[in-house]
Amino acid sequence: MDATLPPASPILPDFAALPQAPAPVTQLGRTLAADVLKLRRTAALRLTLFSGALPVLLTFCIFFFKGHLIMKAGGDPWPRFISTAWQTAGTLLLPLFVVLLTSLVVNIETKATAWKHLYAQPVGRGAVFVSKLLLVLALNAGALLLFVGLLLGAGALLGLLRPGQGFQTYSIPFGTVGWMLLRTYLATLGLLAVQYIVSLFWRSFVVPVGVGMGAVVATFALLQWEHVSKIPYAAPFLTAMSMQVSKAGVLEAAPEVARHEWYALASFGAVLVAGYLVLYRRNVTN
């Protein structure tokens, strides 16, 4: 080294020994902790809260103002109330919610041009991939739970405000609601995986939202097709429509995972594995 230069510090790193990389679970835990923090004050979080409440609010208003007409014949109001709300939520709102949620969560990094930063941190690409996926899955579950909680709460409230409809006299069909909750969640997983991979691949907000909206609309046009149950975007609709109110006024939903829900689960697994293999080796250019 040249004499005119100030001497280099004696505290040079000892770089012969290579320390252990943190365990994959540790990496995932750290990534998840960071991802949860980044969720603060985001549209993704507000959307989750809002989407759970909107269909309940609509159904509540319908029953509050027109319930006496719907329940003219008397009997248990819960089946009709729950199925009205579920069909409002499950047919159109739920697929669009999943599309928006996934795009918004991935967009947190894209908007901050943070992919280059994220991948230059000492966590593997797998940890980044799984962490955000878990986040989307948790928010999706949160929105559904919020929806069900608010729905049952709104029914109870109607029991107080509109005692004539009989919400307070009949018991809540918890078993059926529980099954529908599980089945609806499973039904969203296929399209969630597709949207997740599309969002990660294009790293934009517009492309996944466009793809998602297009797919939801196209699915509606294809509802009569014999293979519609294999389209991930159709699954939430099929699940919501599978819940019926029988002539006797009983809420009916099969207490088993339906064929289209198995398909959704299978596409979830297949799309994620294929997507990860494509994304894993990719260069990070933004």
């Binding site: 990389a21 985001t42 901050a112 230059a120 941190q121």
Partner: peptide, 20 residues
Amino acid sequence: VTLLNRVGALIENPSLYDHL
């Protein structure tokens, strides 16, 4: 992953989350 543990980097414009 191990080596990046000892590297700090600032690539082009900093990656900042504006909402935080």
